[in-house]
Nucleic acid binder design. Structure first.
Lengths: 115, 115
DNA sequence: ATATTATATCATTAAGTAATTATATAATTA
DNA sequence: TAATTATATAATTACTTAATGATATAATAT
């Protein structure tokens, strides 16, 4: 049975959280555990405002939650299933990675992959 | 950094396949089983060129595979884990749907949601 | 061979969105 | 209080990409 329009909109929105390389990079770092914004900036090598912008997006979508400790604000993934979804995706990519990489519809300016 | 740059690029690209509502709609219909392009057009109410464009994107990424039968071309999901990823996402959304729905980043609506 | 049906491709348009720069807010320390 | 550190916000710019409309290819039927 086909899903209703809203269900698809919402699900697409969830995946959009994962679909940007910078945002996904942040999420991958958060899979290690709770991190401050500064730690995320250092780990991802993104600019601080850029990290904050993406974090707000992720927080709005309830993919991450935050708590302040002094002047630091710590972020963490809000749900264990996020980790599961990413693990499953890795398994899928372990076989399909070449096809995904060669997809030409998006130009993500990726560096060359050695095979 | 836990993962290398390429791994993140490729994973982001995979999720981009799911992140557009039209494309996700097509994928959801394909979860029911093999469908011709015409059946997908009818089920999704998207235009035929639009469906074909998205199918090419999905095929390039190896998310779907196709086979011709006469003048019809049938598409199906290429890997059972795609269905698993979508099922897991549904479970996640069963609790987080409100937050995702209320995410304002993509509507360019500047209203902070702090806790 | 011509017409019809099914699908793909391509150029263009229009909308979306990531990154940057500058600035603001908040907590802490001197 | 003023300075410093950590993070957030906002406006702008540059880039990305979905949808459309026109056309092309492919298979089949007449």
């Amino acid at each position: 049975m086909i899903q209703n329009h809203n269900a698809i909109q919402i699900k697409a929105k969830l995946f959009r959280g994962f679909s940007d390389p910078s945002r996904l990079n942040i999420i991958e770092v958060l899979r290690e555990g709770k991190k401050s914004v500064g730690e995320l900036v250092e780990a991802t090598e993104l600019s601080q405002p850029n990290v904050s912008n993406h974090l707000r997006c992720l927080a709005d979508c309830d993919l991450v939650k935050s708590e302040r400790d002094g002047r630091y604000i710590y972020y963490q993934l809000s749900d264990a299933r996020i980790d599961q979804i990413l693990s499953l995706s890795e398994k899928l990519l372990s076989e399909a990675a070449r096809g995904v990489f060669e997809c030409t519809r998006y130009e993500m300016n990726a560096e060359a992959v050695q095979e």
